[in-house]
Design a protein around this nucleic acid. Structure first.
Lengths: 338, 338
DNA sequence: CTGTTAGCGCCTTCAG
DNA sequence: CTGAAGGCGCTAACAG
């Protein structure tokens, strides 16, 4: 009954009408006034035959593919999973389908570019945690709409959706300061990455608001990875005046940092307190359970999809910073300074 | 120069030939014998105009979309990230593009079904960590090819690609037994999940080979999650004769288990040794660094893509279990029984 | 209120 | 060795 090879002409035949009118009725074309009876027959025929329009044929005609491209660098990051999930869900409810692509391909072989843009496979792109100049200029040249997710490039023309990185990090640091810590280190992200820069700014702001001075040695930059956090923590602990608390700009970095603390025979939170930016289930099961600031990644991706769809409809959209206020989840990795 | 709106007719015009011959030359049609000169001109024109065929038009004609669907349940699992990455990469090199879809949609709304199958958006499906009966029968009804990744359904007709779950778990258990442990627990996956069943079988086999008896209370089943591992570990530690070692069938489960051990004031590996199935960067940074058995997920996905492509070409393919032998990575979470 | 026609961009028989 | 013609499945002018 539900054969997949039913074409519009089939339902038209079944309903005893011409394909064109069947098309218009099924698409709810307002300019067509059919008598209810006919319209009923058409819908019934479509339903009973299990008709579903062929996306490619329709795309060819309409010049709309109803597919969104999701470009991610370094697919292996838990952050990306949440983004993928959020994007897929929201896209699905809006009738779109999502194509994933690894950003590295673009840089390396230009292959992504060929496959997604030139082949006209997508209506628009979600650029997650990427903002490479060459990619963006290519997109502009082709007039392909895009929106940034979790990245806010200084030079870009596209809309971007991000969260309150600065406020979130400030919240973490304030928590530490309130516990009496004065030498609070920052495990920062890589130089040149805007999310990292904003979190660092939040750290600086909160420190100065707490009347604490920030010296450069308190800031240890490195990749958003366990290894990066591990290195950074060692650095902060080897200082002439070691830190007593640390705010990590990523969850994985915090995990690495915790390992470094343990490796030196120190205890958390007795000897050093730690808070991380970005929450995930694993945080609760680390040793000790880690204090985090929640990062609404799924929501970010959903919002980005909404924005992109609106852009596709011709709207001009301003950058959006999620209104969701950052929230601190206290567990057991911070303590009052002894 | 590289405008995206160049059509075949444009390059044909530029080369001074008819579109049809341009098409044949560009696609390397062997039945056409052009003089090198003409062929040269066509290629030059295509290159200088930056011609790329429109995927939708071609798909409509050829009835091949050159896109693969990747269906995943519960997008939020690190296991999926590696699968996504492997699949995307390999698909890309084979000229395919990948569409992701959440399996839950299928079950819940049937929406996935409509969007991917009926709309003819994909040539075939990769079913990762899913094997729902209704979905599979639907696919069969539509004659859409699919291959299972990291799942090996008993009833299914499709090819499946998996790794040596049983051998890997056996390796882990043997390691524990060699350290003198006798009461070795198994943190198993959910009932009815084939990967979980095979790992459990590996546990049983290794136990009996080591001359150890397995009682039901040594096996704690639960979801592949931190919480699941946490519950399971508590169970195993509350036994009249608590376990001294544990083999966890997932990395996240092991993390939960470690937390449970700590929560009871016990130490790893002094009081209880732990090994997990599935390795990832985080394992090295847990406290203590966790012993794991490597799980070649990326490779699995790559192989699955290869298989699917061959199936699309009409080949019949047998199930494949990755030949990569399981390897144990010793870190610091296991010790000789005191 | 409904049907006819043309074409989206591409490939592929079939003639020349 | 090359061109003309038809059609994949769908939609949108433009008639009737």
């Amino acid at each position: 009954v539900t054969d997949s090879r039913v074409r519009l002409k089939d339902v038209a035949a079944a309903a005893g009408v011409n394909p064109s009118i069947a098309s218009r009725v099924l698409n709810g074309d307002p300019t067509v006034s059919t008598r209810p009876e006919t319209r009923e027959r058409i819908h019934a025929a479509a339903a009973s035959l299990g008709y579903t329009p062929n996306a490619f044929a329709r795309g060819l005609k309409l010049r709309r593919t109803m597919t969104l491209g999701l470009v991610l660098p370094n697919l292996v990051s838990a952050v990306n999973l949440e983004i993928i999930q959020g994007a897929e869900r929201r896209a699905a409810t809006a009738g779109y389908v999502v194509l994933i692509a690894d950003a590295d391909d673009f840089e390396a072989t230009g292959d992504l570019h060929r496959r997604l843009l030139l082949e006209h496979r997508v209506d628009g792109l979600l650029l997650a945690s990427t903002a490479s100049e060459p990619m963006v200029t290519e997109l502009d040249r082709h007039g392909l709409p895009y929106v940034f997710v979790n990245r806010r490039p200084t030079a870009g023309r596209g809309t971007c959706v991000s969260n309150d990185d600065e406020g979130g990090m400030a919240l973490a640091v304030r928590h530490l300061a309130a516990l009496g810590h004065r030498r609070i280190g920052q495990i920062a992200g890589p130089d040149g990455v805007d999310t990292a820069a904003r979190r660092l700014a939040g750290y600086r702001r909160a420190m100065s608001e707490a009347g604490l001075t920030v010296t450069n040695d308190l800031i240890a930059a490195g990749p958003f990875s366990e290894e990066g956090g591990w290195q950074a923590m060692h650095h902060l602990l080897e200082l002439p005046q070691p830190v007593t608390a640390v705010a990590a700009s990523s969850l994985v970095g915090a995990a690495g940092a915790m390992a470094a603390v343990h490796a030196r025979g120190l205890r958390i939170p007795d000897d050093v307190s730690i808070v991380a930016f970005h929450d995930a289930p694993i945080a609760q099961f680390l040793h000790p359970p880690l204090d985090t600031v929640r990062m609404p990644l799924r929501e970010m991706a959903e919002t980005a999809v909404d924005c992109l769809i609106r852009v596709l409809q011709g709207e001009e959209i301003d950058d959006v910073i999620l209104p969701t206020p950052p929230v601190l989840i206290e567990r057991a990795s911070t303590a009052r300074l002894a």
